[in-house]
């Protein structure tokens, strides 16, 4: 009896992985989920996958904003968890993975928003953020040149950024500026730096100072401090365009456009790909409007009601051009 019992169990143990193969997913967030739409949607993508694949498990880890600690934390995360796959998102993470990959050769990593080819257990997918910046810049240029009540005659648009960082300096800001200049070459871009990602009061002061100097459209990329920019723009009846996620509800009528990254969809897709064992390991992809992972959120009522049809038409035309490949941006190498 006992022997039969044991045989049954051992058979079960051997067979189980073959039958169910539930995925153990670790999501490493180099920051904090709440307040960072990009990480929130990454987590949401993983959650959606887990919800649809019963038996799979998910561990989220927030590593905080100090980039110097990520290496140590990623290492402990990987060594403690024994995950089937670690999903993460940040341009600088591939460097870290490159450093620890030899230590954990069987550990698979998928990194969104990053670019690094040639590491056998890593697959990266980069958003074409020049494209994203360009779309936002083009929209900002159209708004600033329009006869909307908050727009002025000066050809000035602005950005309030938390800090300078490579993706910002090489992709986003140049893309934004190109977009502006595509509307009118006389546009100038005013970039102001906050010095951190949370001093909303100062962000508000910065935005006000910018507005008094003639800026009428601002793209804030300064983390939680962007609340200050929203406040300043709203108070003075000027306009904002936003990045990465649907932010219209924060200030309808002030936030006139959002150019989103479909991080949730991308994360979900990449996990499915992993489950189907079709992940192209060692490769690096670039995705953008064409692939459907960068999107101007132009279905939102706030967008439709606030912007005149002329602007909306020109934006649709732009998106169409990018989708069709008529207008393309060199895949950034990062």
């Amino acid at each position: 009896m006992l022997r039969r019992f044991m045989a049954f169990f051992s058979a079960l143990f051997i067979a189980l992985p073959l039958i169910a193969a539930p995925l153990k997913i670790g999501v490493f967030i180099p920051g904090q989920r709440e307040g960072s739409p990009i990480y929130d949607s990454l987590a949401a993508g993983a959650e959606q996958f887990v919800a649809e694949n019963p038996g799979s498990s998910l561990r989220l880890f927030e590593a905080g904003f100090n980039q110097a600690e990520w290496q140590e934390k990623l290492t402990s995360f990987v060594s403690s968890g024994r995950f089937d796959v670690v999903l993460t998102s940040n341009p600088s993470i591939p460097d870290l993975i490159e450093a620890i990959a030899p230590l954990f050769p069987t550990q698979k990593f998928i990194c969104l928003d990053g670019f690094k080819a040639g590491i056998p257990n890593l697959h990266t997918v980069l958003y074409n953020q020049t494209e994203q910046g360009y779309i936002a810049g083009y929209l900002a240029g159209l708004i600033s040149s329009s006869d909307l009540p908050g727009a002025n005659a000066q050809k000035k648009a602005g950005m309030v950024i938390g800090q300078h960082y490579p993706v910002m300096d090489t992709l986003i800001a140049p893309g934004f500026e190109q977009g502006l200049k595509a509307v009118d070459p006389s546009f100038s871009l005013d970039i102001r730096v906050l010095g951190n990602w949370y001093d909303a009061t100062k962000a508000s002061e910065l935005a006000k100072s910018m507005i008094t100097s003639g800026v009428d459209v601002i793209l804030p990329i300064c983390g939680s401090a962007s609340q200050g920019v929203v406040k300043a723009a709203k108070d003075s009846n000027h306009y904002l365009v936003f990045f990465d996620s649907d932010e219209y509800s924060r200030a309808p009528g002030t936030i006139l456009g959002c150019v989103a990254l479909k991080q949730k969809e991308l994360g979900y897709a990449k996990l499915n790909e992993f489950a189907l064992k079709t992940t192209p390991w060692g490769s690096a992809q670039v995705v953008g409007v064409k692939e459907g992972y960068i999107e101007l959120l132009d279905k939102h009522p706030s967008y439709i009601q606030s912007l005149p049809a002329s602007i909306r038409d020109r934006m649709s035309e732009l998106i169409a051009r990018i989708s069709s490949g008529t207008l393309s941006f060199p895949a950034p190498k990062l």
Binding site: Q67, S92, D95, G114, H164, Y165, P166, L334
Partner: peptide
């Protein structure tokens, strides 16, 4: 760090 001495090959600051 982010200006003159930034590692041009890194995404870290």
């Amino acid at each position: 760090i982010t200006g003159p001495f930034q590692d041009p090959l890194s995404n870290f600051q």
